[in-house]
Design a protein around this nucleic acid. Structure first.
Lengths: 329, 329
DNA sequence: CTGAAAGCGCTTACAG
DNA sequence: CTGAAAGCGCTTACAG
């Protein structure tokens, strides 16, 4: 491996001149050519550690994810990766395996790795998070969750749930089970439920019950079975596509026809919603685009630019086969 | 941010002593205590760039993946991540978005980032790959593919396909479509087909046709439809679960009952195979464990240890609902 | 436009 | 066991 010193010697110039060539300082045409040739011949590439040590302007962005095996995460990572690559940044992924404390640890350890900034796919923001942000003095952008003190790129959970609620009512459903998740998760647990509640508030003749489950499909299968036995709704509105998949599986296992015997809706627009039969009616979020925009926003921040504190990305309802239209009957 | 110099001053010792404390050199109990206290008070953490620059023993492992949105990739990454974390290594992920040339580029760029070694989830190994390995002089381990000159951790594609073939025959299927992928992909395109062929070779009264598709589900849906119309097999043996999902979807769309009208098998053991209805009969590979072992193997190599050139991980057939037993009828 | 020199924060022989 | 010093490969004022 060559160093900048080797190149300088070979080109007959000083190290600083080579450095200037590399970093776009002013240089005469003839020395530029000489250095260029040597670099091409040797295949020289600067040692990025030495660069970062000295320049203190690292080009690595830390991305903290709660899990690797989720559709939403994968899509967001793809968006981030693409944008970062375009702007010559590298992505360092830190996986927390859904252990919240590890998110905070990761902020500190990424800080030691001298990342330029952090993209955080958080589940909840605790005081420990806030403390880590301020102690490391790293720019942080949240994806998928929001907090009044931190930059964020969120999906429009509330509006999407509201529209989905209206859709369900418009299809004549009046006995509805809402299957949500913990309220610790503001986006998924709170916002989606609130939007849905807002939609049904105006509707008088409507029986709605609220249930809570985890993000695991297995748990959704179980609780759906209970819900059917005890409440027998015409539709189950699920807070995520994973949960909706569990509900669908439960219906299949019980031999209940979907959508005629039980209607189901999801949230997210995961790829598998179009694989199952019938296709799942769901709300599609633009995960990849959100990741891309968040990455762009972080780079803007890094370059001293400004972005809104809160950025909201779009959604749309995808009508497929799991919602029966009771109005036509 | 503190430096080792600050800590040394505060503790009243030399920088080298602090360094020794950090790296486990011999040190007296009293100075150990002093330094320990100061480090705890200040929250000092060494600058990893400076460490890597000097020590030339970086603790970052580069992982090159063809895509982020695949079940197998996610699982393997989780396994790698876990193992690396345990051994105090960091994982730097480089996504190639299925562009083969980017794999080679990534090897070089990870080399510039001074990674200690590379874990490569390759699709095929070209001469350009081999050249990159030798030029960068980085230890490389292949996951999921093999090559006679490179360390690899592979799934037992051949044996699994053989066993699956026997299973299909044992269930009385004699008119079989095998839906595979390009032979550029040795593991998925060649090994699985060969294993399957070996299984049916002994069987006389058997009509088998071979088809080829891509890794995309959409393409599988289309070609399955054609296969049914033109050949009408009793079973379609698919080279991946994604393809099998497409075949299942195609059957649903055509109104053909699965498994009685058409049986289907997959490969991989993706999570969604248990979500669809009926559950997909498939071969489960231990992706996460393979990732874990590959990471461990790389670290062994880094520490001067030895590992076998080729490492094979286990599989098992998961019987679910997509294969009809023709023998009982 | 170009070069000599200092310095980034560590580690590691080498002496003591 | 401990410290002074050199050096890892860069960048960046500062002079010229």
């Amino acid at each position: 491996m060559n160093t900048i010193e080797d190149i300088a010697r070979l080109a007959g110039v000083a190290k600083s001149t080579v450095s200037r060539y590399l970093n776009g300082g002013s240089i005469s045409e003839s020395t530029r050519k000489k250095i260029e040739r040597i670099i091409n011949e040797t295949g020289y590439a600067p040692n990025s550690f030495a660069q970062s040590l000295k320049a203190k302007k690292p080009n690595i962005i830390g991305t903290i994810v709660p899990r690797l095996d989720s559709f939403a995460t994968s899509q967001i990572l793809m968006g981030i990766d693409e944008q970062l690559r375009e702007q010559n940044y590298q992505m360092l992924i830190s996986n927390t395996s859904q252990v919240v404390e590890r998110e905070v640890e990761s902020v500190y350890s990424l800080s030691n790795q001298k990342v330029a900034g952090i993209l955080l796919l958080a589940t909840e923001i605790t005081n420990a998070h806030l403390k880590a942000f301020s102690e490391t003095e790293l720019p942080v952008i949240l994806i998928g969750q929001q907090h009044e003190k931190v930059y964020s790129y969120v999906h429009n959970d509330d509006a999407a749930a509201f529209e989905l609620g209206k859709y369900v009512l418009a299809h004549g459903h009046r006995k509805i089970a809402y299957l949500g998740v913990t309220e610790k998760d503001i986006a998924v647990g709170v916002k989606r439920k609130e939007g849905f509640k807002r939609a049904i508030r105006a509707q008088g003749d409507c029986e709605v019950r609220f249930y809570e489950t985890t993000f695991q499909m297995e748990d959704a299968i179980e609780i759906t079975s209970t819900i059917i036995d005890s409440f027998n709704p015409s539709i189950i509105v699920c807070a995520t596509d994973n949960i909706a998949m569990g509900a669908l599986k439960a219906a299949h296992l019980k031999g209940i026809p979907v959508p005629s015997g039980l209607s189901i809706t999801g949230f997210g627009g995961y790829a598998m919603t179009n694989i199952v039969h019938p296709g799942m009616t769901t709300v599609k979020f633009e995960y990849e685009e959100a990741g891309r925009q968040a990455a762009e926003g972080l780079i803007t921040l890094l370059n001293g630019g400004e972005i809104p504190l809160k950025n909201i990305s779009d959604y749309r309802i995808i009508e497929r086969g799991t919602v029966d239209n009771k109005m036509t009957k």
